[in-house]
Structure formats: C-alpha cells, structure tokens
Amino acid sequence: MAAASPGREPDQSPLHRTAPAPGGWRTGEAASGLALISPTLLYAAFLLLLPILIVFAYSFWTQDFLTIDHTFTLANYRAALTEPIYLDLLGRSLINALSVSVLAVLMAYPLAYFISFYGGASKNLWLFLITVPCWTSYLLRIMSWKIVLGYNGVLNSGLMRLGLIDKPIETLVYNSNAVIIALLHSWLAFAVLPIFVSLEKLDRSLIEAAHDLGDTAVQRFLRIILPLTLPGVTYAFLIVMIPTVGDYITPKLIGGSDGVMIATAIQAQFGKAANWPLGAALSITTMIAASLLAGLVVLVGRRLVRALA
C-alpha cells in the first residue's frame, strides 16, 4: 500500500494533499476534484481494495496448523477447481444468482415502466412504496418466508383450505427455489431504480418519432425503448447478481441442504475448518467466476437486444 510505504514525502501522494501547490496537475480543477473524492477514495482503498489484496495474497499461501506458510502455491486453487463439492456449490451459487437477477430484471422492468410512464404526479410515492419492504430487517424478511413457505405455512394451509391440495407440499422451503424466492424479494427494489432512471432519461419524442414512422407499440418497445434503456437494465442485473452469488444468510436459513451456496463453504474454511488460504482461494474463484458470468450475460443480452430491434 502506497500510503504505508516508508520514506515517502507525504505531500507527493495525491491522497494526502490538502492545499494545492502552484503549477501542474496540483492546481485547478484536477486538484479540487481529487480533494473532493479523496475521503471516498481513502475509504475505498483501505476498506475495499486492501482487504481484497490481502485475501488475494492468502490464496497463494498454505495453512500450517496455527501459522501460515508464505511459500507461493497454487494448491488452493487446484482444490477449489477440482473438488466436486466446491464446484457443485459454486455452480449452484451462480445458477441461483443468475436466476434471481434475471427474474429481478424481468419483474422490475414492467414496474419501472409503469412508474415512469403512468406514475404521473405520484412517481415519488410509488418509488417510496417499493422501498417499504426494505425497512424491515433482512433477517426478519427471510424468516417470514419460512412462515409463508413452511410445511404448515401460509401457502400450504391456504392451498389446503381452498381444497387445491390434500397434504402440504414439502418442496416449498429448504431448497434452491426457496432461496431464489427470498433473494428475489430482497433485491427486487434495487433492480427497479436503475431501470426507472434510464426510462426517465429517455426522450419521449423518440418514442413518438418511432410511432410516427410506422411502429406498433411492440416495435417501439423493442426498437427504441429497450435498446436505449439497456444501460439501466445491465446495471440492475449486475447490482442484483454480484451480491447474491455470495449471499450467506438466505441459503443458511431457508436453503436446507439442497440450497447451500458457496458462501457457506467459504465461511467454513475461515471458521471451523480454519483453512484461510483455501477460503481465500474459494473467494477469489467465486469473484472471478461471477465476473465472467456477469460479463457473458451482459454481452449475450446486448446481442439479443440488437437482434430483437
């Protein structure tokens, strides 16, 4: 870390500059811009970049009972990429996160569309109402899903009362589906906002022009609205997918043995198993796999939208 290295003139680091010195990049807009973002930059550097670098370093070391052997090795990655249990968990995590994020985007788009186009004067009220579920504790919301989906839960007893089923459905909770439902519920609001913003920014006269040039409502959506709001859709997808890959609480509480995700394995390595380097390698592998999958989905999505237009 640059800031920690000894013998460095403090005022040579952009992070430490307070008053601009005359000349060069240190004055004017660049310097004041840097000064403005430096608290954030410092925060990000120390609390995001530094921990990741530490985890990255650990992933190449070896746990030797209570001490760490600092010799470079790829053994942890070999374990992470060959042990069936880890591949299985990683695959399930990616599939679950992908399902949640794709479903979230598909459900958020109509909602955002409705608010943007038909919200009228009460757009802000609609947005506020969408965030209301987030006011309850995350934990409570997951527990509530247990009550809804449980063996004697709301859904099962409701369906039985209606005479649609004879005995409770056992596959509602403690599996991947339950995890997907609960995660979707938690993250949907976050997907609505970026899509809403990109719809708000869309110049309505472009839609009118397309209408004027002969497009039906479906064509206007596919040729104008969707391509031009794709950045919002992409952002919504990423903002849901990236955090859900590594979600720990939801699978733990309602995933059962069938819904376990990679975070549980990582937690075990840092906890009971006390193999930090393997945990670190699993974390880095998950991060890279999630990034690759996200990038792939974004690319495929763009192609698809272009093909539809």
């Binding site: 472009l206 022009a209 391509p227």
Partner: peptide, 28 residues
Amino acid sequence: PNQRPTNMVFQNYAIFPHLSVAENVAYG
C-alpha cells in the same frame, strides 16, 4: 400515428441516438 399518411419533423428532431444516420433514415 403509424396508420396515417403523415410524417413529422419534431422540434428537437428526435434523432435516434443509438442508430447511424443511414439507420435513422431507413427506420420507417
């Protein structure tokens, strides 16, 4: 509007920003 024999030039021109000039003209 798409069923009328009229076309319009909008005040802000409403040029589709994601398309080239030729694609804009070919739109209809």
